[in-house]
Design a protein around this nucleic acid. Structure first.
Lengths: 192, 192
DNA sequence: AATTTCATGTAACCAGTTACATGATTCA
DNA sequence: TGAATCATGTAACTGGTTACATGAAATT
C-alpha cells in the first residue's frame, strides 16, 4: 500500500523471479551473480532495501523458514497485489521511449511474460516490431541528413546503433514465427 | 586537481563535445536534445553541476563571453589536463565489462576517438572484435547448457542478446574494412 | 580450531531526476 | 507589453554502489 514507487529494473527483476519461485534475498543475489540475468545488479546494499520497500508496498511478503534462529532465512513470495502489479507491467504497451531508454528493462519484461499467455507474447512482439521498424526508419533519415556533417566516427557510431535495432527487429520476427509454430504443432497449449 | 572523480557517461560526453568545439551548458543541452547523442541525459540539474565539478577538477574552464551582463553565457573549453584525461579514456583497453555494463559509454568513446588517429581507431575496433567474439562464444555455451532448463521466453531473451552482440561484431568488421579502405585510397592522411 | 559459505543488514556517498527559481533577450 | 526563448542555477529526492558489520552453519 502507500504511494506507488517507480518499478525500477531491479524491482521488476525481483518481482519476476519470485513470481516463478519464492526466494530469499540471498537466492536472488545468486541468480544475479551466476545466470545471464547478471546484467541486473546484485550487491546486498541494493537487494535488501529493495525487498523491504516492496514489502512495505504490499507487493511481496517474506516469511522466515526457521523460526528459532536469530537471523532466519526470509523467503519472499508475491502477494495478490504484487501479482496484479507485475501483470500490469507485463501488459504495458511498448513505446519508443522503451526502445531508447529502457531496452534492457523491456526485454526483462519479455523474459517473464510467459505467464500472460501466448496471445500476449505475440502482441508484445508485434508492438515491439512496429516500434523498431519505425525507429530504424527514423534513424536512417537522420543518417542521411547528417552524413557529411559529422565525423567518420560519429557516423559509424550511428550506423552501429541502426544495425543493432535492425538485429533486434530480425529477432522479433523470428520469435513470432517460432511462437506461432508452437501453437500449430502443440495445439493451443495454455501457460503453466 | 584534487581527487579523481569517476568519468561517468555524462562527463565523458561533455569532455568529448567541448573537445571538438567550446560550448556553454545550454549548447550541451541542445546537443543532447536534438542529436542522436540524445541517449545521454540532458536536464540542467545534471549538466550544470557536472560542468562545475569538471571545472573544480581542472579539466575544463569556462569563460563568460559577455562581461557586462549579470548572468553571462559561460563558454567552456578543455584545459591541457582535461585533454590528457580525455586521451587517457579514449586510449583505454576494451574489456568484457565494457561490453556488458558500459556498451553505450564505450561507443561514446569511439564516437570521439577520431582525434587519436587512425591507428588507435583500428586498434580499438580489433580489441572490441576480440572481446565480442569471445563473449558471443561464451553466451552460446550458456545457451546450449541452459536450453531445456529455462522458459521459452528466457531462452528467446538470451538469443536476442546473442544476436545483438553478433550484429555488433559484424559492424566492427565492416568498420575496420572501411577505415582500412580510406587509408589506402587517401594515402595515410593524419587527423586534424 | 579455523576457514569458508550462508545470510541479512547498515552507513556514507554519488550521480542523476524532477521541479522550481531567476533573470536577460528577442520577437510578436 | 507580453510571450517565448535563452541561460544558469538550486533543493529535495531516489536508487544504486562500495564498504563494512554481524553472526550462524558447514566444511576442512
Amino acid at each position: 500500500m502507500s504511494d506507488p514507487p517507480t518499478l525500477t529494473t531491479l524491482r521488476l527483476a525481483i518481482l519476476g523471479l519470485i513470481s516463478m519461485q519464492p526466494m530469499s534475498g540471498y537466492d536472488l543475489r545468486k541468480v544475479f551473480e551466476t545466470t545471464p540475468m547478471g546484467n541486473f545488479s546484485s550487491s546486498p546494499g541494493a537487494i535488501y532495501p529493495a525487498l523491504k520497500s516492496l514489502e512495505k508496498n504490499g507487493w511481496v511478503h517474506g516469511v522466515p523458514d526457521k523460526q528459532d534462529t536469530l537471523r532466519p532465512r526470509l523467503v519472499y513470495s508475491l502477494t495478490d497485489r504484487g501479482d496484479e502489479v507485475l501483470n500490469g507491467e507485463l501488459d504495458a504497451t511498448v513505446t519508443r521511449d522503451d526502445l531508447i531508454w529502457r531496452y534492457d528493462q523491456m526485454m526483462l519484461r519479455f523474459a517473464f511474460m510467459e505467464r500472460r499467455g501466448l496471445a500476449r507474447l505475440l502482441a508484445f512482439l508485434e508492438e515491439l516490431l512496429t516500434e523498431l521498424d519505425a525507429y530504424v526508419a527514423h534513424l536512417e533519415e537522420v543518417h542521411e541528413q547528417t552524413t557529411g556533417q559529422t565525423t567518420v566516427c560519429g557516423r559509424l557510431a550511428l550506423e552501429q546503433g541502426i544495425e543493432g535495432y535492425r538485429a533486434n527487429a530480425r529477432w522479433a520476427r523470428r520469435a513470432i514465427r517460432e511462437l506461432e509454430g508452437t501453437v500449430e504443432c502443440e495445439g493451443g497449449e495454455e501457460n503453466e
